[in-house]
Nucleic acid binder design. Structure first.
Lengths: 237, 237
DNA sequence: TTTTTTATGATAGTATTACTATTGTTTTAA
DNA sequence: TTAAAACAATAGTAATACTATCATAAAAAA
């Protein structure tokens, strides 16, 4: 499952600066293009993790990076679009990991295991873009992610393509599910459910443990992976 | 599945005014006790449904019911606690329906089917408290519910017992799951997952249809019910 | 019935948030 | 080297999320 050629290739790519092409309606100016933009990405992740999305403000962010509110507004129209941007980053990151790690794998059952592993361990197995703390990005995705598409603007945002990355992730996972069992009637629902379950149950284990059977000790999420594999196997058998 | 004696009993109880005993840390003064309080419950549901939680304010609510911000603040410390209150109301309502409708049922498999039916159809099958529009309450639960426990205050709120109703619901469902299959290792996770899936996929079908396989035409959520039954059967076989 | 308490309304005020606008200075690109 | 773009500094506005005070109306107690 761990291939040094791929690992090396990732590192090589990293050093050449990974860039995600995220929907350009999300920002006024691409933050990946400048020092200030990268600072905004880096420290918004840290600050949202620290304060929670509701208490996070552009003013606090500006203070933290030694800039001004007005400057941040030149990159993002508002904090909600910044959240969608970060959530998209996470979806793209997971998609990217799945692509790289399933590249040489032909058995769809093994592919699905790798996918589940990526859902659960995305931030830990791999080094990322230097200014993005993937572990904290995962944390804020787990805590705040659903807020990206639970708003009155979903339909408008959706029509602008802001959730395309999630759909594309769901699509590629569902294709593999259908490869495993072409008769299975709910490949998309299973795909999204495995993803949502992964995040939900990590959250539950940490904050509302009576809502789940698994436990997360420290950051050991093995039990979540085991559970998701069990669910997937059973449903596709 | 439909028992007229129970139906009559519900109506009788209704006419005697159903009261939910919700955690009294959620409010400063029990809104079920006064005209203004009931107005707050009734119209906050309508307004949150109309504006979405972020754009909903106590000022708008006060204007709508011909009262003042200050008066509403005498009932709820802030709009977040009001949301948790409403979400608790929904959990209690579902629990209540499950209790009533599974009362005379002994087969746990049938009980689980009734539970799934209650998750999906909660607002439609039964008349409710006269000042609560259960259908819109279900809508806002689907759209805004997760925000009740996705905050920086989860742990604090949890320690005050604000999520007890959900835990108790999860517990009773998981007991029935364990009755069906005592060997099943994840009764709590399955219980919460069926509930979350129900709400998620209704939401996806309406707003992000490429994330699911089912469709919801008008308010016909039959396909969701069928899917949940399929998942449950397969996992517990 | 009168008195007392409680509930609500009316009004005012504050700190913070979520922006927009303007102007000047620094950095980058032609 | 000059023009353009990016950023900082500052100021200002409307709305939000409250808190406080006082008057009045309704309900409960005496």
């Amino acid at each position: 499952m761990f291939d040094f050629r791929i690992w090396f290739w990732i590192h090589l790519t990293m050093s050449l600066q990974i860039r995600f092409s995220l929907n350009d309606g999300l920002y006024l100016k691409d933050p990946q293009d400048s020092k200030l933009g990268k600072n905004i990405i880096q420290h918004s992740i840290l600050l949202i993790d620290e304060y929670g999305f509701e208490s996070f403000t552009f003013k606090k962010l500006a203070e933290r990076i030694g800039s001004t509110e007005a400057s941040i507004y030149r990159y993002f129209e508002n904090k909600h679009l910044l959240l969608i941007f970060l959530v998209n980053w996470y979806w793209e990151w997971v998609s990217y990991l799945i692509k790289v790690n399933t590249m040489n794998v032909s058995d769809p059952r093994i592919k699905l295991k790798i996918i589940i592993h990526s859902f659960v361990f995305a931030p830990k197995d791999n080094p990322g873009v230097e200014y993005v703390n993937e572990s904290k990005l995962h944390n804020i995705f787990i805590s705040e992610g659903v807020k990206a598409y639970h708003t009155k603007d979903v339909d408008k945002d959706n029509s602008k393509g802001f959730f395309k990355s999630y759909k594309s992730l769901a699509n590629s996972v569902s294709n593999i599910i259908s490869e495993i069992n072409p008769q299975f009637k709910y490949p998309y629902a299973l795909a999204t459910n495995l993803f949502e379950m992964s995040n939900n149950h990590i959250y539950f284990a940490k904050h509302l443990p009576r809502l789940t059977d698994i436990s997360v000790n420290g950051n050991n999420v093995d039990e979540v992976e085991t559970m998701l594999n069990y669910f997937a196997d059973k449903l596709l058998s």
